[in-house]
Design a protein around this nucleic acid. Sequence first.
DNA 1: TTCGCTTGTGACAGTTCCATGACAGGGCTC
DNA 2: GAGCCCTGTCATGGAACTGTCACAAGCGAA
Lengths: 231, 231
Amino acid sequence: MTAKRILIVEDEKAIRDMVAFGLRRAGYEVREAEDCREARARIVDVRPDLMLVDWMLPDMSGLELTRSLKRAKDTEEIPVIMLTARAEEQDKVGGLEGGADDYITKPFSPRELLARIQAVLRRAAPAGAADVVEADGLRLDDSSHRVSAGEREIALGPTEYRLLHFFMTHPERVFSRGQLLDRVWGGNTYVEERTVDVHIRRLRKALEPFLLERLVQTVRGAGYRFSTRDA
Amino acid sequence: MTAKRILIVEDEKAIRDMVAFGLRRAGYEVREAEDCREARARIVDVRPDLMLVDWMLPDMSGLELTRSLKRAKDTEEIPVIMLTARAEEQDKVGGLEGGADDYITKPFSPRELLARIQAVLRRAAPAGAADVVEADGLRLDDSSHRVSAGEREIALGPTEYRLLHFFMTHPERVFSRGQLLDRVWGGNTYVEERTVDVHIRRLRKALEPFLLERLVQTVRGAGYRFSTRDA
DNA sequence: TTCGCTTGTGACAGTTCCATGACAGGGCTC
DNA sequence: GAGCCCTGTCATGGAACTGTCACAAGCGAA
């Protein structure tokens, strides 16, 4: 695997340099941008595998930049980690909802940053990049955020949607509740494992009126599996 | 792939518990040891895929433990991550030179620990880590947790599944009931040896409708063997 | 053959695991 | 603020699984 390219968008040179230094030492290829305008220009030719975006930027907030990236087809898959000086939960949530894949609060250690970068890259990697996933009669269009079975549209809550999306992009594999929490809820949430059961149930309840088979299967003692073949 | 086994060697119960909790949630199988002596004992029956070793232990430094593990043929491949309270670069180097595959400084976040564990395991994974085991007409796919003979899928309970998986990955070898308890049930469970008989029977009962030969064979006075050649 | 020991088998009770419905709190919209 | 949706947690009931036992069957040696 070639070195992953990371684009840093940060106006303070001191921080940029420090981060860039740390990342280069860790084997990443690093590009820098001072503001959103420059960032946009760089994205095209650099095609970064991941972006680090400062919350506060001179021309436009990093959150906006992120949001707009996530809206555009050709950039939405680039994972974004927000750098923020504000520690308030409020902002963190905002960062994630804006489409950031993770956030990290200044001051942070190079090590913490590296850990998060690795985690985010790993999470992003296996995704088949496909926008539409289909299985059996089920169809999930990630760009429009719609799920349908045949002609009928299926309404799902946010969590059920993410869960289904994860399952459909990783079919025929068993995931433990813990793994699902990590990969669907996100690595640093603390939620009971049983909660997964409940959302599985909600997902099934939403899907099964439209389907003949049970696509989300229980594997006793192991977890759940999405499969079009019957168990 | 079955859950990876991780052995934690750490004398402080609080830390051990916290780490174990996080790891279990992430889908790992966790065993614990308080000191080097106990660790050595556990290694034999647990056969961990990775070890987390505290730097400071009551009976011997974790560094020494690591060093000695790396010197022994049968344990040298087990990746080791050192947990250390000392942040000095000095020690980090020492840890790595001692043969540790990575180190992490307390306090660390669960996420960081997970990231490092995954990184280390990925590095250690022997490239083509086969998820699928086949023998005769039998096929066991560990990632989807399915067992099948030809087209037909075979339903197994958790214990029978683990038992079969163990047998299929260790064919043509006789295991005593005690060994099976150690390696299938786990090193520190207390169960009657005759219980193994019962599960063997359940496994046979599940398999034999689909197979011509008896794959799980009894070796009188010694134990059981999985073999495609008839006895 | 008979005895002694090992293994197979069916039954059973306790436990664990999972599905399900209910519910309270939080956030958002109007 | 009222109403609505979403979320996480809990209690419950039932199904599946587990470990043990008692007895039957098998095997080997004398």
